[in-house]
Design a protein around this nucleic acid. Structure first.
Length: 243
DNA sequence: ATGGTGGCGCGGCCA
């Protein structure tokens, strides 16, 4: 994980919750000291080199889950925190690589297991946030060049339908609760000057249950981290709430 | 233009 950038953003923005994906670090290597010194509790589920999720919060969770029930996955991609009736599910959806590949099938299976899990959580908790790298651009307006991306991974209809089935259970894309400037993206490829040209996709989502959507007061993309030296290829998405 | 860049970790995979 990019610890200096994380500490900088926590210090300047002071979020109650900060969800990271692709930490690429084992739990025994997790930089607990600096994060706690910054005033945050660290919850994490990692592995060597790949995947890994972490959720940094002002207050410790009462319960934690790291698996999709009934779906055996060696990848550490899920971290669910419980705060009484409030549930915060941090997810790193598989990339899928290419349409028709084994990894694409894995992505669709994984999304089906996630849908079942979130559906179960929604029956038990009215206040649910599911956020993270979904690796799906929900609509063409979330893609810099829809014709170029048509039927490509991250944009294909089966992936979009899987996301719509998630939403249909009672989740809302918080970004679309508000007016937004066109061509708003959260991820840009490192190659070919994609960020400079704003050749991006909006694949990082904050999905909220209806009860939380009523208290959602803003959702925006903060591009300042992507402009820095050695940035992540993603940049933070921020939602605020009055509960 | 089937390329291009970057992280992890030391060759090759993954995104």
């Amino acid at each position: 994980m990019r610890l200096p950038q994380v500490l900088q953003w926590l210090s300047s923005e002071q979020p109650d919750v900060f969800a990271l994906q692709e930490t690429k670090i084992t739990d025994d290597q997790f930089p607990l000291g600096p994060i706690e010194a910054a005033g945050y509790c660290a919850h994490f589920s990692g592995q060597p080199s790949y995947n890994g999720v972490a959720t940094l919060t002002k207050k410790p969770a009462s319960r934690i889950a790291t698996e999709l029930p009934g779906y055996l996955d060696p990848g550490r991609r899920v971290l669910v925190l419980h705060y009484g009736d409030l549930v915060i599910a941090n997810v790193y959806v598989p990339n899928g690589v290419a349409i028709g590949s084994d990894k694409y099938r894995y992505k669709l299976e994984w999304l089906a297991a996630l849908r079942a899990f979130l559906g179960q959580l929604l029956t038990e908790n009215s206040l649910l946030v599911a956020l993270g790298d979904f690796n799906i651009a929900p609509e063409d307006r979330d893609v810099h060049d829809p014709e170029l991306w048509r039927d490509k991974v991250l944009v294909s209809e089966p992936e979009r339908q899987a996301l719509q089935r998630l939403l249909a259970q009672g989740l809302n894309d918080s970004f679309r609760l508000f007016d937004q400037v066109p061509a708003s993206f959260s991820w840009w490829d490192y190659r070919a000057g994609a960020f400079r040209r704003n050749h991006g996709l909006r694949i990082d989502l904050i999905l909220v249950s209806s009860a939380l959507a009523r208290g959602c007061t803003s959702c925006s993309i903060d591009k300042k981290m992507r402009k820095q030296e050695k940035p992540s290829d993603h940049t933070p998405v921020v939602a605020t709430f009055e509960i």
